Simulated assay, not measured.
Amino acid sequence: MAEDYAAKMGRKTEAELRDYVLNRYQYREEAVLAALDELALRGIPEPGAATLVAELQLSKQETDRRELAERELEAEKEQARRIARGEVGPEIQQKAGPALYSPGTITIFSVLFSMVAGGVLLALNLRALRRTGPALLVVAFMLAYLAATHYTLAWLQQAYGNEYVWLGSVFNIVAIVIYNLVFWPRYIGLQAYQSRSWGSALLICGLITLVYLAWALRFGMPTV
């Protein structure tokens, strides 16, 4: 229930009402407007009240827009959480947005297989959102990062043997962090979505991983 500022100001002293006006940036616009109205009712209007009222009404409109946006954003986030928990029906899921692989799925695939798998899922998300440029950027980053990691590991293996082979996992973790903390917030952000089934992706990634491992072992190349 909205607060009854008119009744509240009716119980204030003149000094308290003047304080609302003087320190108006510390209070809600509705409270200050009610204080100005109460002063006018008592026959002791604030000098320049008309200008203050116009200023406060504009400020109130901006505050109302901001608070509405915050409520809508929170509602979208709550609905996304409910969809992820399976608490809503399919008709609501259809309205919630496109089917995307979640950050958790991208992380799991990157850990189970490699950063390539996570990058592919992220690129597929962007393609589903019709954001071709960012999708190509993810693919370019993935290929460049994979090449840099491969040559770095190859050089380390040649110079130090297998002493630093564990760095492959570190490079993989860094890629996961970049996916989740750079690409996702920038190009997907708070987009409402429904979680996409990952069964087929798991099968495909498993087959690709087997082929890649066989190829890497055949040519004596380090894996990421």
Results as ranks from 00 to 15, higher is better:
Pro90Leu: 01
Phe109Gly: 03
Ser110Phe: 01
Arg196Glu: 03
Ile92His: 00
Val111Ala: 09
Ala147Gln: 10
Tyr164Trp: 12
Glu163Asp: 15
Gly161Pro: 11
Ser200Arg: 15
Tyr160His: 11
Ala123Cys: 10
Ala99Glu: 13
Trp155Lys: 11
Asn162Ile: 05
Ser114Asp: 04
Arg130Ser: 10
Val138Lys: 05
Pro90Trp: 00
Glu91Tyr: 00
Phe141Glu: 01
Thr105Met: 07
Arg131Leu: 11
Tyr193Ile: 15
Ala175His: 10
Leu121Thr: 07
Val139His: 04
Pro134Gln: 14
Ala128Glu: 15
Ile173Asn: 03
Arg196Cys: 09
Arg130Lys: 14
Asn172Gln: 09
Pro98Val: 05
Arg127Asn: 02
Asn125Leu: 13
Gln158Met: 13
Glu163Arg: 08
Ile108Ser: 05
Ala99Lys: 14
Phe171Lys: 02
Leu136Ser: 07
Leu167Met: 09
Ile173Thr: 09
Tyr151Met: 12
Leu112Cys: 11
Tyr160Val: 11
Val174His: 00
Val182Cys: 06
Gln157Val: 09
Leu100Lys: 00
Thr132Ile: 06
Gln194Thr: 02
Gly189Asp: 11
Glu91Gln: 00
Val111Asn: 14
Ala154Lys: 09
Val138Pro: 11
Pro134Lys: 06
Met142Cys: 10
Ala117Met: 13
Arg131Ile: 01
Ala159Glu: 08
Thr149Leu: 04
Leu203Phe: 10
Ile204Glu: 03
Leu122Ala: 08
Val139Ala: 15
Leu153Thr: 11
Gly133Ala: 08
Ile178Pro: 13
Leu112Glu: 00
Ala99Thr: 08
Ile92Thr: 13
Tyr101Cys: 09
Leu167Glu: 00
Ser169Arg: 13
Ala96Glu: 02
Val138Trp: 02
Asn172Glu: 09
Met142Glu: 06
Leu126Ala: 06
Leu156Glu: 08
Thr107Tyr: 01
Phe141Ala: 05
Gln158Ala: 15
Ala135Glu: 09
Gln94Thr: 12
Met115Asp: 12
Ala154Gln: 14
Ala96Lys: 03
Phe113Asn: 03
Leu203Ile: 15
His150Tyr: 04
Pro134Thr: 05
His150Leu: 11
Ile173Gln: 00
Ala159Tyr: 09
Met142Phe: 06
Lys95Val: 00
Ile106Tyr: 05
Ala175Arg: 00
Phe183Leu: 11
Thr105Lys: 07
Val139Gly: 03
Leu122Val: 09
Leu126Asn: 03
Arg186Ala: 12
Tyr151His: 14
Gly189His: 15
Leu124Pro: 01
Ala140Cys: 08
Arg196Met: 12
Tyr101Met: 05
Gly168Ala: 12
Gly168Cys: 07
Ile204Cys: 00
Ile188Gly: 12
Ile204Phe: 04
Arg186Glu: 07
Val138Cys: 07
Phe141Met: 05
Ala159Val: 12
Leu136Tyr: 04
Gly206Ala: 02
Thr132Phe: 08
Leu181Glu: 06
Arg196Tyr: 02
Arg186Trp: 15
Ala135Arg: 03
Leu167Tyr: 03
Ala135Ser: 10
Leu126Ile: 02
